[in-house]
Design a protein around this nucleic acid. Structure first.
Length: 354
DNA sequence: AAGACGGGGGT
DNA sequence: ACCCCAGTCTT
């Protein structure tokens, strides 16, 4: 591969000098424990630093060591992840940490071969943990890195394609500062986060502007190239908030796999058509009398990356029976102990406004 | 190679 | 209302 950079040493020095001076003071940057680095990198997948910080701090308070997390109940782990999204990250991390406890004597693997075997550890996270925790010169290519490199070297490959990622990893292998792999990888990501931003990059403040091919050609706003995603499909739901005579609410645990696996929710049905009887029939299964017009209460809209939930919420009070084994009746206080997706937190919140 | 999988921010 | 952000696993 042709590296069009003029002076590698000069580039590394300009980048690292800037990073040494300007790097943000982040909780996980005060840590050297590979377990803590690992947790931060899992949380940072698809998620902004500002969102992660409070979750990370709380998580470390609850599970200070790898052993603590490995020994914890899954429900507690999910509760600590509540609202962060992509809950398979939490389940996979929990599985992987138990694997490290049992198969690696509690020490996070420091080789690419071993660390990649862990659930939820893909090419990015493997490189990030190896470089940041162990200073191994492995590439850690995330969206920030692809954006920075696509501009530095005017690469017009679609960064959504798998082939492009290999190209960027190879590029990092060629330009990484071998003895400062941790700082180098973090510096590139930091540059992408605070200077080389998706829109309106701050080129005038950029420490490596003089090495940047896109800036030289004035095409920084055209990069990176990325195919547009399809709009999410809309699913119509009717959710049922049943409150029994003891002011307990009917909730249920979602299946072990798929969307929002193992989280709790108010029972609902998919309503393909705007029919009137379906919610009544659904409620009748619990011995509750619900009518479309009488019990309709509230609308909740929730947007995921691949679908939209438009939820009509129905409320009813009275005796509740015929509870399934995955279902529970919980008081308002007890609801707080269970993990709900944000969409159903919105439903819960509507109960406070009366 | 494409889709599933959450949630947040900016304008 | 519309735009943007994007790792890993599964199919």
């Amino acid at each position: 591969m042709q590296v069009k950079i003029l002076d590698k040493k000069s580039f590394q020095q300009d980048l690292l000098d800037w990073y040494d001076k300007e790097k943000r003071d982040l909780p996980w940057r005060r840590e050297t424990d590979p377990y803590r680095i690992w947790v931060s990198e899992i949380m940072l997948q698809q998620t902004k630093v500002d969102t992660v910080i409070p979750y990370y701090n709380n998580f470390m308070e609850k599970f200070p060591t790898l052993q603590d997390l490995a020994d914890a109940d899954e429900d507690k782990v999910l509760k600590a992840w509540e609202g962060l999204g992509y809950y398979s990250r939490a389940r996979n991390l929990h599985t992987a940490v138990k694997e490290v406890r049992d198969e690696y004597k509690g020490k996070v693997p420091d080789t690419e071969e071993d660390i990649k075997k862990l659930q939820g550890v893909g090419p990015y996270t493997a490189g990030a943990v190896l470089s940041i925790a162990y200073n191994v010169p492995a590439p850690a290519v995330d969206g920030n890195v692809m954006r920075v490199l696509s501009r530095l070297f005017t690469i017009y490959d679609d960064i959504g394609k798998a082939a492009a990622k290999n190209k960027f990893e190879q590029l990092i292998r060629e330009i990484i500062a071998e003895n400062r792999a941790s700082d180098f990888n973090q510096a590139v990501m930091e540059l992408g986060a605070v200077i080389c931003t998706p829109t309106s990059p701050a080129c005038l403040l950029c420490p490596v502007q003089k090495h940047c091919s896109a800036k030289e050609e004035g095409v920084q706003d055209l990069l990176p190239v990325k195919a547009k995603k399809k709009p999410p499909r809309t699913v119509h739901l009717k959710a049922l908030v049943l409150q029994d005579e003891n002011d307990r609410f009917l909730v249920e645990k979602r299946p072990d796999t798929g969307l929002l696996a193992k989280l709790w929710q108010f029972p609902y049905i998919e309503a393909a058509e705007e029919t009137d009887e379906d919610i009544a029939a659904f409620a009748a299964e619990f011995g509750a009398a619900v009518e479309e017009e009488v019990n309709y209460y509230y609308d909740v809209k929730h947007v995921f990356s691949h679908l939209v939930w438009e939820i009509k919420v129905y409320r009813a009070e009275g005796k509740v029976d015929n509870i399934g084994s995955h279902q529970r009746l919980l008081t308002k206080d007890e609801l707080k102990e269970f993990t709900f997706p944000v969409s159903h937190q919105k439903i819960m919140q509507s109960l406070e406004e009366e």
